[in-house]
């Protein structure tokens, strides 16, 4: 009974339900939060010098003369249909804008995260291996410094260092369109270097510190001594016994810091005008484009909630002792 597939699914459904509840809570909170915004769709200057009659008709059209409960209901129903409204700035549906932005963000975040993880693995393992040595202290000092540096500032420093050699912003050079696949690909990659590097470096610090600490603790476990007693080489022990177990806290850390990674996305994209979700938020703030801001915030929350869910599931998969 305990191991039947149904009972195994139960915790997952509970987690899913919790994720849905949080998302709903945020959606409702979002609705009320944006009612604080000055003005509404009918008087925000979309129609300059509108007569009171036209205003009233617009308010009726947008349902603004209805009760709050009715408006909330309408908002949630539209949301369920994927309708996030229309951007004030470019008059396109918010959902379309956000979809393009999300894809661009992933194109920056995924390589950045991979680079950060690889760097953290190499330096973290080396520091734990040479624990207490000068290189261990130096590597940890570098990681702590990376962790302390604000992302927007690191972006500017790298921009300063690479000025004239790499493009300062954007995702591609609009003048290169139609010059052939290779030229366009090279251009894209050139635009990716600085944002990806900046992002990788700002998330690297926490990864490295946690990996090192975890590895140092794992190396003191009894099963490492047992493996040593079996005559296994250090390299095999490290790779097969120590590293696998030491990676668990890293999974936890990734889960705990997804919110911070989102902050990094906003700052790095704003510096490099990378047309992703972060830049969308930056632009929406500056243009007071409330539908875009509302939609971007909601999408980011959903992404974070889903990522947490995935991290929890990965964790219980990697460590069967942990039940959801």
């Amino acid at each position: 009974m305990r191991n039947s597939p149904l009972t195994a699914l139960l915790p997952l459904t509970r987690r899913l339900a919790a994720a849905v509840v949080v998302t709903l809570a945020v959606a409702v909170g979002n609705f009320f939060l944006f009612r604080l915004a000055p003005g509404n769709a009918a008087n925000l200057g979309l129609v300059p010098n509108a007569s009171p009659e036209l205003r009233a008709s617009l308010e009726h059209q947008f349902g603004l003369d209805q009760s709050t409960a009715t408006q909330l209901q309408a908002y949630l129903i539209q949301l369920a249909h994927g309708n996030l409204g229309v951007s004030f700035a470019n008059r396109r549906p918010v959902a379309d804008n956000l979809w393009t932005a999300l894809l661009n963000t992933l194109a920056m975040v995924v390589p950045g995260l991979i680079l950060a993880l690889v760097l953290a693995l190499i330096t973290g393992v080396y520091a734990a291996w040479r624990r207490g040595s000068v290189s261990d202290h130096a590597l940890r000092a570098v990681a702590l410094t990376m962790f302390a540096i604000p992302g927007q500032w690191l972006g500017m420093v790298l921009l300063y260092g690479a000025r004239g050699h790499l493009p300062a912003g954007g995702i591609s050079d609009p003048f290169l369109v139609g010059t052939g696949f290779q030229a366009e690909l090279a251009d894209r990659l050139q635009h990716m270097v600085l944002p990806c590097l900046t992002y990788a470096l700002i998330v690297y610090g926490a990864f490295m510190i946690v990996l090192r600490t975890s590895l140092v603790e794992t190396l003191s476990e009894g099963y490492i001594l047992a493996a040593k007693a079996r005559g296994l080489s250090n390299r095999v022990i490290l790779r097969r016994h120590a590293l696998r177990n030491a990676l668990l806290p890293l999974v936890t850390l990734i889960g705990l810091t997804i919110g911070t990674m989102v902050a990094g996305v906003i700052l790095v994209e704003s510096v490099f005008s990378w047309p992703g979700l972060g830049e969308a938020i930056y632009d929406a703030v500056n243009a007071r484009d409330y539908p875009m801001l509302q939609g971007a915030f909601l999408l980011l929350t959903v992404v974070v909630v889903l990522s947490n869910l995935v991290v929890d599931m990965t964790y219980s998969y990697l460590d069967p002792r942990v039940r959801l």
């Binding site: 945020v26 944006f34 801001l293 509302q294 980011l300 929350t301």
Partner: peptide, 20 residues
Amino acid sequence: TDVFLVVPILPLMIVVAALW
């Protein structure tokens, strides 16, 4: 606390700051 812990905090700050 759980709800606030999950919500990405900087975007929420940005939204509130933009509105205020």
